[in-house]
Design a protein around this nucleic acid. Structure first.
Lengths: 229, 229
DNA sequence: TTTTTTCCTTACCGAATCCCAAATCTTTTT
DNA sequence: AAAAAGATTTGGGATTCGGTAAGGAAAAAA
């Protein structure tokens, strides 16, 4: 039976999440701050951790960094929508997934399930491929380095995030609002144009001829995609 | 067509939200308290619920918990602005999003749209195959790619949606007005002719001989269908 | 801290593309 | 043969995308 550690200072959330996860057949350990969580980990082998960002004594991000020193199980962060400390900031610090409050407990359960499946199927193999490639374009999610035909390309944070998202969904068409919502955690009304400007800037950097893009293509009326070669 | 249940004791809000959602092409069910909402859910399959927190008889949070026992559609809470957002985030455990009153109806609409998109795409991720096929014709809903005998075909956005709709209902006959209303939410007087034109353009692209269509056939006096092979 | 630099967002215009409706022609049904 | 339904063609109008630029925010440097 797989074990999941849930860490949140709100007991109501702790209990309810526990109920949902137990219904899925997981054993649930509970902690109400980072210190308690680390202590629980010393005595138990878990396959996944759900961690609130805002907690007394030791906050979630600090706790996560300490966990990463010793363990490599997946970590899912919880945070209130209002704090909005960028999704990317959280993920790039070593989290595997990120859920904003309020959240659907069923969705959290689904994410836990999917993280555990990935974790155990990799069988503690450290070899998750962090490099995405198509044709001469490649992106390394560990080093955040992007190269075209071996030449390094300097992208800004937003540009990197957008390109990364598109390459993780290689071949799939994503609408401007989908892309927008993936990073701003906000539905878009009228702000989709921002995405097109970023797309243009990305093309300027990674395409030989931005007018006739080879990698980052538009699908009229539907969205953008990265071509799979 | 997706259905949204809106629940609020203020009839003015109920009506205005209803108008905006209907303009977006959703079917709207209305309820004025939690009990009514639960009853409506027994008789209808909905894809999203908008729920006021403060209501007589049965309040929103209680209603939400009861809904979570049986359903897993997204729930969006409405709450008074007075409480601070972090507090709401904590209290509203189990919701997928929240909006504070007073609110911009367009914002609420955008959030509903975004939740429904996530909900239906998650559903199709698990079970349904994203590729529809009949004979040599195939359509991939992820990449939005259509091929005939392996050859890629370039369709416009509207052509794609119409073909997709027909292929999702493979073998079934759909009238022009049905097809029209599926995308252009609302009337269909004289406008069915437009569908005819699109059908012709689609045939031009996917049929060997558009005069004697193999896939996209007409059923005289009733409508169109995609032949199942 | 203040200054400097880089980056993000928004607005606008032009160009490419597509949608729609009307008019006309063809096929099917009665 | 007449009537009804679908097929085809065409042009104006609406959308969507690309490109540019400027103001403001954020990050980096001093």
């Amino acid at each position: 039976m797989y074990k999941v550690l849930v860490c949140d200072d709100d007991r109501a959330i702790l209990d309810s999440v526990g109920i949902y996860l137990e219904a899925e057949g997981y054993a649930v350990l509970k902690a109400s701050d980072g210190a308690e969580a680390l202590e629980a980990l010393r005595e138990n082998e878990v396959q996944c951790v759900v961690l609130d960002v805002m907690m007394p004594r030791m906050d979630g991000l600090t706790a996560m960094l300490k966990m990463r020193d010793k363990y490599n199980f997946p970590i899912i962060l919880l945070s209130a929508k209002s704090e909005d400390t960028d999704k990317i900031a959280g993920l790039s610090f070593g989290a595997d997934d990120y859920v904003t409050k309020p959240f659907n407990p069923l969705e959290l359960t689904a994410r836990v399930k999917s993280q555990i499946r990935r974790y155990v199927s990799l069988g503690s193999m450290e070899h998750k491929d962090s490099v995405l490639t198509t044709g001469g374009l490649s992106l390394d999610r560990d080093t955040k380095a992007v190269t075209v035909d071996g030449e390094p390309v300097k992208l800004t944070a937003r540009e990197y995030s957008i390109l990364c998202y598109l390459m993780e969904n290689m071949g799939r068409v994503l609408s401007s609002s989908q892309i927008y919502e993936a990073f701003w955690n906000e539905p878009s009304f009228g702000t989709e144009k921002t995405v097109t400007v970023h797309v243009r800037n990305i093309r300027e950097k990674i395409e030989i001829n931005p007018k006739d893009p080879k990698y980052l293509k538009v699908v009229w009326g539907l969205g953008y995609k990265v071509e799979k070669y």
